[in-house]
């Protein structure tokens, strides 16, 4: 049963900062008392509140600002895996608090945070002794966000009760968001069909559009580097060709690459490349160069949509 494995992925539904502290502080203190390493990744304001409550004990806790470390949610799983690799010794348990979702996340960021949460059921081996608490502010988030938390977590704590989630998709069902189509681009969005000889043209089109939208040269180069890697994947793995669509919204320049291929690894782009020359790195690079990389794959084909904030 998922609820009784060494790896515990648990949602914490709280209402406001005081309630957050009421749960998080004992969770942290119990861990420190047991000699368990603790990593807390959340908003800077909540880190500040925790530091104030923990006092001197805060020095034993590792903190990271989710708005920086996890602004692109695809960078969060590598963070947890690095923590596990670094701190895991002698079977002692690890504790983590990871809060990726807050009310100000854009719709696309929210979708990726929710997919990340589901992927946490697959990315970490059930035999890993880690208790990962995922806080959700039920007083600030929409009801459907809370409902999705029930679907992506085997265990949910609300008030002083922790119980198995009746709505959990299960490990097997956790891949479902990966195969769900993205929202369509705006009507009239320009498109360009590309093949192996068109990569320079793809780069030029992305660079020109991004410059016109106001993206500065350094960030433009980063977007172009990522766009090239995604287009190359279509050419090499996606049937030799693809279709680029590009548009902007109020926050970002967006480039969407569709091809007829299929991606089989839901963790693609989230695994830190090994040293040595082997192994793909294109989607890992895209996740480091872009603010959001949305990957969806279906029997009809694959879409990779990259966002770069203006």
């Amino acid at each position: 049963m998922e609820a009784h494995t060494p790896y515990q992925h648990e949602a914490l539904l709280y209402r406001g900062t005081a309630d957050f502290l009421h749960h998080a502080v004992p969770f942290i203190r119990d861990g420190l008392e047991a000699g368990e390493p603790v990593l807390v990744v959340t908003a800077q304001t909540r880190i500040g509140a925790l530091r104030a409550e923990l006092g001197g004990d805060a020095a034993q806790v590792e903190f990271a600002d989710m708005a920086r470390a996890g602004s692109n949610p695809a960078r969060i799983i590598p963070l947890w895996r690095d923590f596990i690799d670094r701190e895991r010794t002698n079977g002692r348990r690890l504790r983590g608090i990871g809060e990726p979702i807050w009310a100000e996340r854009s719709p696309a960021e929210l979708a990726e945070c929710q997919w990340h949460e589901s992927l946490l059921n697959l990315a970490i081996d059930p035999a890993t002794p880690m208790w990962l608490l995922c806080p959700y502010d039920a007083s600030a988030l929409d009801h459907d966000v809370i409902e999705e938390a029930y679907r992506s977590h085997p265990m949910v704590t609300e008030g002083d009760h922790t119980r198995e989630s009746g709505a959990f998709r299960g490990r097997g069902g956790s891949v479902a968001p990966f195969t769900t189509p993205l929202p369509a681009p705006p009507p009239g969005t320009r498109r360009f069909a590309f093949g192996p000889g068109d990569l320079a043209t793809v780069r030029g089109m992305v660079a020109a559009f991004a410059a016109q939208a106001g993206l500065d040269p350094r960030r433009n180069d980063e977007l172009v580097a990522a766009a090239h890697e995604v287009a190359t994947n279509s050419v090499r793995h996606g049937g030799g060709r693809g279709e680029l669509r590009w548009w902007r919204d109020d926050r970002s320049v967006i480039c969407d690459f569709a091809d007829g291929g299929r991606i089989h690894d839901p963790l693609v782009g989230r695994e830190r490349p090994l040293t040595g020359s082997a192994g793909g790195r294109g989607l890992w690079l895209a996740n480091q160069m872009c603010d959001l990389v949305q990957i969806r794959t279906m029997p009809t084909g694959t879409v990779v949509r990259v966002h770069k904030k203006l």
Binding site: E222, A225, P273, T275, R281, W284, L285, M289
Partner: peptide, 15 residues
């Protein structure tokens, strides 16, 4: 500079 950053990010800066 972009390529140096790419090499760092993909784990090839220290070979």
């Amino acid at each position: 500079a972009l390529l140096q950053r790419v090499m760092t990010v993909v784990g090839w800066a220290d070979l």
